[in-house]
Computed example of a mutant assay.
Amino acid sequence: MLVKAATSLILLLLTWAGNSFANELTPDQQAAKERGAALFNQYRVGEAELRIAAEAGDADAQFYLGEELRELNRFMTRESQKWLESAANQGHIYAMIRLGRSGNDLCTIMSNCPQGSKTPDEWLKHAYRITLPLAEQGDAEAMFLMYKITLDTEWRTKAANAGHALAQYGEAISIEQGTGFYLFRSRQQEIEKWFKASAEGGYPKSMEHYLAILVEREDWEGVRHWQHRIAETGYAPGIFELGMHLAHEPERYGHELDLVKGYGLLSLLLELDGGGNLRRFAQHVMPKVAAKMTPEEFEQALEFAEEWRATHPPVSYFPDKLSIY
């Protein structure tokens, strides 16, 4: 699963960094970090929460805070660079890569980029030196980070072959867009192979693509299976789709009517008051579902939603950390 993969990446970076990757957080600081990261992944503003953990020295919170400030201002500001450098100085490879790409930032055009402790090229070289030895030893995470550092697609292919779900997604997208020479049938087979592998590795956007392949094949049992799998990752579009189909608003894939779970899932999207259109879509569908429910079912739906929140990852759009597959 992605949560497990993210944890392994943090542990891997801990090994690479000379210092501790993050100071130990208090329970309140950890809760603030998790809340801030969840808001970031919902395209909402988590600055206040992230700042609590960032100021406590947590490198991942520093990275997310720096990214959020950069995105809110649409270019690298002095403060966003400060937080990204704080994370990078603790060994955060994604922060190094972001700083390494800042030479292409809007601030370059505006001639007001903040002066950093290293040049963009120096940050990329630093990330390269740290990451290459582990990539050469066959570590899939390191291979994928080498792709992010160099943009050499051979590293992405190596990471995909080593089982990295996001790299596998990138391979599928690249082949789908016409990369490589394939006969039509073999191209489609290769695309399906990578989407399926990535989906089985827990990446919800690949699950979404693989599900579309199964729809074309009219494999309704497979479609239903993957709709549930997608929703269980917390992927917002997947939650919306499963909620609609369980409530038969509409239903196309043979789901048994379940108004309680359908309404409960749709209600999870009401917290998305910052980014995307799914909150508005859910608000459009929910009254239609509620009109078919008894008062008892309505209460059960709210209880189901609370239980789901307690046992599943936060609702997320799973934005790409550095926007390149």
Rank of each mutant, 00 (worst) to 15 (best):
residue 138 G to T: 02
residue 324 I to S: 11
residue 28 D to L: 13
residue 237 P to R: 03
residue 20 S to Q: 10
residue 255 H to G: 04
residue 203 Y to D: 11
residue 188 Q to F: 11
residue 52 I to N: 08
residue 192 E to N: 11
residue 107 C to H: 03
residue 29 Q to C: 08
residue 92 H to F: 08
residue 247 A to Y: 08
residue 218 E to F: 03
residue 78 R to K: 13
residue 170 G to V: 13
residue 273 D to R: 08
residue 5 A to W: 14
residue 112 N to D: 10
residue 212 A to I: 10
residue 214 L to Y: 14
residue 255 H to V: 05
residue 301 A to D: 11
residue 286 M to R: 08
residue 60 D to I: 15
residue 256 E to T: 14
residue 219 D to L: 00
residue 216 E to Y: 14
residue 98 R to I: 13
residue 286 M to S: 07
residue 171 E to V: 13
residue 251 E to H: 13
residue 135 A to G: 00
residue 60 D to L: 15
residue 217 R to N: 02
residue 128 Y to L: 14
residue 101 R to V: 07
residue 137 Q to K: 12
residue 135 A to F: 05
residue 269 L to V: 01
residue 66 G to H: 05
residue 48 A to V: 04
residue 147 Y to R: 03
residue 229 R to S: 01
residue 59 A to R: 00
residue 52 I to K: 04
residue 237 P to Y: 04
residue 288 K to R: 07
residue 223 V to L: 10
residue 19 N to Y: 12
residue 313 P to N: 01
residue 91 G to W: 06
residue 123 W to Y: 11
residue 103 G to T: 07
residue 249 E to P: 11
residue 32 A to S: 02
residue 138 G to E: 05
residue 277 N to H: 06
residue 301 A to H: 12
residue 226 W to F: 02
residue 2 L to K: 00
residue 237 P to K: 08
residue 220 W to H: 05
residue 126 H to E: 12
residue 263 Y to A: 06
residue 126 H to C: 02
residue 55 E to S: 02
residue 226 W to C: 01
residue 14 L to A: 12
residue 314 P to D: 01
residue 297 E to P: 10
residue 180 G to R: 12
residue 313 P to R: 03
residue 39 L to S: 07
residue 75 F to P: 00
residue 186 S to E: 12
residue 20 S to P: 02
residue 19 N to P: 14
residue 321 K to Q: 15
residue 110 M to K: 15
residue 47 E to I: 15
residue 305 A to N: 00
residue 194 W to Q: 03
residue 86 S to C: 09
residue 259 L to Q: 00
residue 210 Y to A: 01
residue 62 Q to V: 13
residue 57 G to L: 04
residue 206 S to T: 07
residue 232 E to T: 09
residue 116 G to W: 09
residue 217 R to V: 00
residue 77 T to Q: 09
